[in-house]
Write a protein that binds this DNA or RNA. Structure first.
Lengths: 168, 168
DNA sequence: ATAAACTTTCAATAAGTTTTGAAAGTTTAA
DNA sequence: TTAAACTTTCAAAACTTATTGAAAGTTTAT
């Protein structure tokens, strides 16, 4: 397979995975493009490479920057802005996990905490079932939360070393 | 808070989380409804409770069954079909992880494996960057895959015990 | 101050996804 | 076999989300 073809396949696969996990397809594709690009790209280049509009490119790049995955670079004496992606996979994974926890897991944990406090009669099967499900899910979610917290602080090698050692 | 209100909040929160993670909102809501319901519900009851159409209820229930989260029950002498959800949170988490791995992670791993095999000149920055990114992501994805594999086989208490022990 | 070079915004539109509901299909009991 | 009770299907409609592109805004050099 040729390099150019391989790049396209990578961009496509990454875009598809993103969209299946609730991340805008274009955002994932722009990110993929920057990941396989040495150095930086301008908005124009990204627009051309992926055949997307100026508006779309601009908004997607802002999103990627707000997710902490991409940075703007400024070259002395030039007006254009250059974009480049952090290529460290472990940082990327951490960054994505961090953002999604903040945006999605945290609010759910708040609701679950509130719902575990709802009082009722344990003789009532309606209440009992509700309470058990909510409490169990809350516990699971909190464990996930703790593990993510550890992951944020950890070095990649230490993290996987620890996990894979335990699971052998 | 009242039980009825709490149930609605739970159904809403679960639906929202689902949609943010690429799971149809209605599917997550029906699942949530069954989770807080002792015993079984009929299609009619689910339609009424969530104000959804017969077609929607039917398709969503089939999906939930194909995900292994819900089962049909048959009561002797009755024509109606009853649906109930497995209430074991650990089973649910495993089941969801299993399905998503099969549907989404596996195909990406296949593409990544193929892309890591693309040959090129390591003096070429284009090739070098492509190869490094793809190889790194492939490694990470394989580690995730291994961890999921362990999770599928494990008991909940053992799994979290091991993870949380390591991370203390 | 001006104008060229570039970035950002956002209303309109397109694309994608979910939902409906009526019709077709199936099963069961008599 | 018939018909009532129930389930399934799927084309059309509603809804949601993503994208465009032209206009407005900003920055920089002169």
């Amino acid at each position: 397979m040729e390099l150019a073809e391989a790049k396209l396949k990578f961009i496509e696969a990454w875009g598809k995975l993103g969209s299946e996990w609730g991340i805008n397809r274009t955002m994932a594709q722009v990110h993929a493009l920057l990941l396989v690009t040495p150095g930086e790209l301008t908005t124009e280049e990204i627009m051309a490479e992926l055949s997307i509009s100026r508006g779309n490119a601009n908004m997607t790049l802002r999103d990627l920057i707000s997710w902490g995955l991409v940075e703007k670079k400024h070259r002395a004496g030039e007006r254009k802005e250059y974009f480049y992606a952090d290529k460290d996979t472990w940082n990327i994974a951490r960054q994505v996990a961090k953002e999604r926890r903040k945006r999605e897991l945290d609010p759910v944990l708040k609701v679950l905490d509130e719902l575990t406090k709802v009082k009722g009669d344990n003789k009532d099967p309606e209440y009992k079932t509700f309470n058990k499900s909510v409490t169990d899910i809350n516990k699971l979610a909190k464990n996930v939360d703790k593990t993510l917290e550890t992951m944020f602080k950890a070095e990649e090698s230490w993290f996987w070393g620890s996990i894979l050692k335990v699971f052998k």
